[in-house]
Design a protein around this nucleic acid. Structure first.
Lengths: 348, 348
DNA sequence: CTGAAAGCGCTTACAG
DNA sequence: CTGAAAGCGCTTACAG
């Protein structure tokens, strides 16, 4: 392949392309960048492009960013990246959106460490990011770290007191309503709810959804059917399951705070010879594939929209968040999809 | 707070700092960047730094990168980011290493899509990354995509035919040996192995480790104790478990290809009233927290070193990979840690 | 120890 | 339609 003279970086530059094409660097720039052929004749353009291809020219993004005095970077701050698949989904959504807008994502994982957070913010500001997505792996209220004040900001899976910053969060209430509704629609009337005892948007919202669904189906609310658990995992589900089995009359269906709780509940039920779904219908939450899709029987669940949270917040940032007259910030609720599997059947 | 004049980017520049400090921009640059105070008097340096702090000056990384004709970017290409926590761990490791070297990671997730891969590579080259980590979410042989030929490269959790490129992969064999050894050390002699039937480094390596451990413990190899499964998940484990229970004499211990297989096996054992660990000791692989730590009883497992794979490959890239006389590439085996939980006990 | 100046590889008014 | 030139915000020999 033909090779143009090299600069100290050892790479083909636009100057090389211009020289070899016999045009000025300005013309080369226009030919290479202008979508509309308005600045350059079609012939010149074709010629320059051919030369560029021949030399295997790649524009230097750093130089372009500097001269345009604006970059194509967007920052994404995450407080965890591997404890759940959730962060991964959020990143994937943000990244897809970034690509759609020809931007590149600068990702920083802080593991909730303040020093790491500060460093991450510094790094992003140094790189002139156009905006930052600040995210949390579980839905919660956060305080915006100082230093993020000087840059367009959006929150994903979290929000601030008073909603002073635009945010995108899961619609927990609607999700809880859908989960409970799934059970009620199958004809269940004694529907228990194993809920997390934490004070957080997820348990609060899902409980509200649970009550809404009951009301809509004309089923009275029985506080005795709501079983709190302090650990929202398999162990907590197992314990709550044993308490649940002592209830009389026994519920015929259970809405579990999450899939891990449901997994523990399965164990408790199995120990007592209670069969899912014939003796007990079960619905989970989170739709964690590795559990929900592989329990025996597979677990119906309501999913968390992390991909959408990432995608929508990035998109918002690049369309609204960057504009001069910022729209009034709102906390936007994103729907949680219901995924039906084999764990639900009408009562015997 | 005092404000210096602004440029079109609306940010404080080094020129602003120099002006206000009453020094040249060259002096400001040296004062701000030189670790050793060799180029500038201590007093000047202090003064410049004070002014910079006062103006809340942040260096423009883009400008710096351009003028140094080298960036602090390193690329990480991933073929999946949310299907397992593995990619997250690998990213975390690479990111920590990047931070230790004052570099920033440009992450691209391709979902194995060739177009996305090509785009990702292009983006990275455009940003003059100093090198690229190409990774796979499960250990396998890969073909290096064209376009990656012009940049220092290292492979994480994958390798090429002939090992022409430096790579870091899990030591599957040693892991299989450790898993089996754990069972043998507890006195088990009839140790079954539910292995993936795929032809891949993991099943091959783990099986080698299984046989090595048997030999080291003076236990004969019985091919009848190796149960293949075509789906290495809960369903596969359940099926294999039922086959295993028909073996006579019955094994007293099982090494499972992964934790999901073990989870399915638990179900099969439970159905047949076989108790773990009293009637059957079980060891898994992958150490997927969400499963292994929460099965009843909690599952002993061997972990995959994704964090280390990410950390070591990034470090290698920035220390060896970038140098002129590249060391001879090798496939470096990274140890898999054993995690003991309650699923193993000596035979009755 | 300090400063004037060239240069990194582009973009973009401004003339022609 | 095309080109000469200034400029983005830094770094870094080179003089003094």
């Amino acid at each position: 392949m033909a090779r143009a003279p090299r600069t100290r970086t050892g790479r083909v530059t636009m100057q090389d392309v211009a020289d070899r094409a016999g045009v000025s660097i300005a013309t080369a720039s226009f030919a290479i960048n202008d979508k509309e052929t308005t600045k350059v004749s079609a012939a010149t353009r074709r010629h320059v492009l051919a030369v560029a291809a021949e030399l295997d020219y790649r524009p230097n993004a750093t130089a372009r960013n500097l001269s345009k005095a604006t970059t194509s970077f967007v920052g994404l701050i995450t407080d965890s990246i591997a404890t759940t698949p959730f962060a991964g989904e959020l990143i994937r959504g943000a990244q897809d959106a970034a690509r759609e807008h020809d931007h590149v994502l600068l990702i920083a994982n802080t593991e909730s460490d303040p020093r790491a957070t500060e460093e991450a913010i510094g790094m992003m500001l140094d790189h002139q990011v156009r905006g930052v997505i600040y995210s949390a792996w579980y839905h919660r209220q956060v305080k915006i770290p100082g230093g993020l004040g000087s840059v367009p900001l959006v929150l994903a899976n979290c929000y601030t007191a008073g909603d002073r910053v635009q945010s995108f969060v899961p619609d927990e209430c609607e999700g809880g309503r859908a989960a409970t509704g799934l059970l009620l629609d199958h004809g269940h009337r004694r529907v228990a709810f194993i809920n997390s005892a934490e004070r957080a948007p997820a348990p609060t919202g899902r409980r509200r959804g649970y009550r809404t669904a009951l009301r809509e189906h004309g089923v009275g609310y029985d506080p005795g059917l709501v079983l709190p658990t302090y650990s929202s995992d398999q162990e907590g589900g197992y314990d709550a399951g044993r308490r649940l089995l002592r209830l009389r009359p026994r519920p015929t269906a259970v809405f579990c705070y999450n899939d891990r709780v449901a997994m523990g509940l399965y164990d408790a039920l199995r120990e007592h010879g209670v069969h899912v779904p014939d003796d007990m219908a079960v619905v989970g939450f989170d739709n964690q594939e590795i559990i929900a899709a592989h329990l025996r029987p597979a677990l119906s669940s309501v999913g968390l929209p992390h991909y959408e949270l990432g995608h929508r917040s990035l998109t918002w940032l690049l369309t609204k968040g960057i504009s001069q007259q910022l729209p009034k910030p709102t906390r936007t609720l994103v729907p949680c999809p219901t995924v039906e599997r084999q764990s639900v059947r009408p009562p015997a």
